[in-house]
Structures are given as C-alpha cells and as structure tokens.
C-alpha cells in the first residue's frame, strides 16, 4: 500500500476509496503455546469490503488467529498483512483503522454505555456519534445503567457499538452474537449487513452455522489450526454430487433396496443412522414417490429436505462429528 494509514483513515467510508484489494492476508501462519500447537500453517485472504467468517470447533485456533491479526499476539512464523500493515510492528497505526469485539468483557463494570462510547470516541482520529450507535444497537434506553447491570446480550451489543465507534475500515468480531436473544441476533445481523454496504470489511468468528450462512460472503473452516476449506456456500458444498440431494430423517435401518427401486431415485444410502441421502435429477417426483412409499410402508418420516448440503453438514463432514476438548 503506497499511502500511509493515517492519510487513509479519514476517508474509509467514501465507498470503496482506499480499500486495498485484500484487507487481510494470512500466509502459512504458525503459533504455539509451549508444546500445544494452536495455529499450524494457516493461510487465507479476506477481500476489502467482504464479510468473511471463520468457522471451527472449539480450540481450532480461531481466536488465536484473530488476536494475531488484531496485534494482541505475536506470531511464531508466517506472513500477516492487515490493511497493508503488519499488526506486530505497526499496531498503533492499525488500531486507528480497525474496530474489534472481544469474546467477552472489556468494559469497566461501573461505566455507563454512553460514557464508555464517548471515551472510546476520543481515542480515534475520526469517530461516529455515540448516540447514533446506542440507537443502532438498541441501548438508547440504558444510558444510565452501569455495564455490570446489563444483560449478556446488551453487553455484547455495547461491545459491538464500541467496535464501530472509530469508523473502522475493518471490523473483527469474535462470536458477536453469543448470548443474544433471537431478536438481538437478527438486529446484529442487519448491522453487519449494513457494514458490508458501507464497504467495511468484516472478519467474524462464530459457532452458529446459520450466522455464517446468512452473513458471510465467504467462509473459512478451520480445524486443528489449519484451513479445512474456504469458499462461498456454493463452492463449499459437495462437488462430487452434481445431482440434487434429498435428505430424509426417518427410523434407522430401512430397506435401501425398496428406496432404490423408486423410479426418480438415482441412488440412496443411509449416511448416518436414520439419515438417508437420495440422489436425483427430478426432486419433485422423488418427493412424491418417497412420501407415497412412506405412507404405504407406514414409515414415520421426521424430515425431508431438498437441496444442497447445509453448512452444518459441510462443517461436520470436514471436522468430524466427535466432540473435542
């Protein structure tokens, strides 16, 4: 990047101006804590203005990665560039242009939402209006409530407002909707979508599949400190199944030969116990045949769904479905 960060900081919201082609570049990143390897040769890129979600099981290295990009931790090896800067050596310059949300905490328990926003506003060369942000995250009614008395979801929303107060060009959100009720989650999603409209790059981690599916332009699935897959929902789906997949949840150990005999079924199999996958070129006929068959045979079908793999299916396929600690 030829222009210095300070010069660009003021014009970040002028749609597209000064947004480098790649907001975040990570190449062969490595980080260990003692003998435990947290990040093991991770590479990915997030383009300027896109919403990129890092998805992975607990302990996959998501938070370590994000904290290296935010300049909190030093990497052991590899190359990292954030808005064209090295977060390790140019942290101060970088922090004027980014906003971030920690997984939890970060605010004085006795501080009130408005005063903490005003405080953070004073740190940035250019800042948003604290009252506008309080309105945006739905905390206008809690101006006098000390942080410690806010609910978990309200604390998260205040943390989101703090991430946005400095008019950032890039926002890091570490599990932004953890602890929010469904309404607050939807409202937060709307805020994140509006950031994309303003060409603000968003890098978020999440445990919620639907969140990544709803928000992200591209998703990177991390497992054991490495990138297991990256792409948009379309490209993450199973490439070896050009036909439409129909997924059925029903009692286990049904007679597969009977199912395969149906004329619209190209192939049928029991993927996991009680979960059946059909391949077909004609999903409408397949649904009609399968339901007719189930009624005849007295089989209780609990779910029948046409379509590509859900992100959850992809995630479990890539990271395994064992619980890990």
């Amino acid at each position: 990047m030829a222009v210095s960060g300070e010069v660009e900081a003021g014009e970040h919201q002028a749609a597209g101006a000064g947004v480098p082609p790649m907001a975040v570049q990570v190449r062969d990143l490595r980080k260990s804590y003692g003998s435990r390897v947290a990040v093991d040769g991770l590479s990915f890129e997030a383009a300027g203005g896109e919403v990129f979600a890092l998805l992975g099981p607990n302990g996959a290295g998501k938070t370590t990665t994000i904290e290296i990009l935010e300049g909190y931790r030093h990497r052991d090896d590899g190359e990292v560039s954030v808005l064209g800067l090295d977060p390790q050596r140019q942290a101060h310059q970088l922090r004027q242009q980014i906003g971030l949300m920690l997984q939890e905490g970060g605010v004085y328990p006795q501080a009130r939402p408005r005063e903490i926003l005003k405080l953070f506003a004073s740190f940035y060369p250019k800042h948003d209006d604290p009252d506008r942000l309080l309105e945006l995250v739905g905390l206008s009614g809690e101006l006098k409530t000390p942080y410690r008395r806010l609910s978990g979801g309200q604390k998260q929303r205040l943390a989101l407002a703090l991430a946005l107060i400095g008019c950032p060009r890039l926002v890091f959100l570490d599990e932004p909707t953890a602890g929010m009720d469904p309404q607050a989650r939807r409202a937060t999603w709307d805020i994140i979508r509006s950031l994309r409209e303003q060409q603000v790059t968003v890098l978020l981690t999440t445990h919620y599949m639907d969140e990544a599916e709803q928000l992200a332009d591209r998703i990177g699935i991390i497992d054991r400190g490495r990138l297991a897959a990256v792409g948009d929902m379309e490209s993450l789906g199973r490439r070896d199944t050009p036909d439409t997949t129909v997924r059925m949840v029903a009692p286990a150990n049904l007679e597969l030969a009977e199912l395969r005999a149906l004329s619209a079924v190209k192939d049928a199999g029991e993927d996991q116990s009680g979960v059946y996958l059909f391949e077909t070129e004609d999903p409408a006929s397949l649904l009609a045949e399968v339901t007719a068959w189930a009624k005849r045979a007295g089989v209780a079908v609990r779910e029948l769904r046409v379509g590509r793999e859900s992100l959850e299916d992809i995630f479990l396929r890539l990271t395994g479905d064992r619980i890990r600690e």
Binding site: H92, E104, G106, V107, P109, F120, F123, Y124
Partner: peptide, 18 residues
C-alpha cells in the same frame, strides 16, 4: 487488578489509546 480481570486493559489496548 480488576480492570485486568475484566479485560478492560486488553480492550483499551485494542484501541488507539497508547
């Protein structure tokens, strides 16, 4: 000590405040 405990020092560190 409590600012450190509650992550306030960490969060301030992520802002331009030196």
């Amino acid at each position: 000590a409590y600012e450190r405990h509650y992550g306030v020092l960490k969060r301030l560190g992520g802002s331009p405040l030196t």
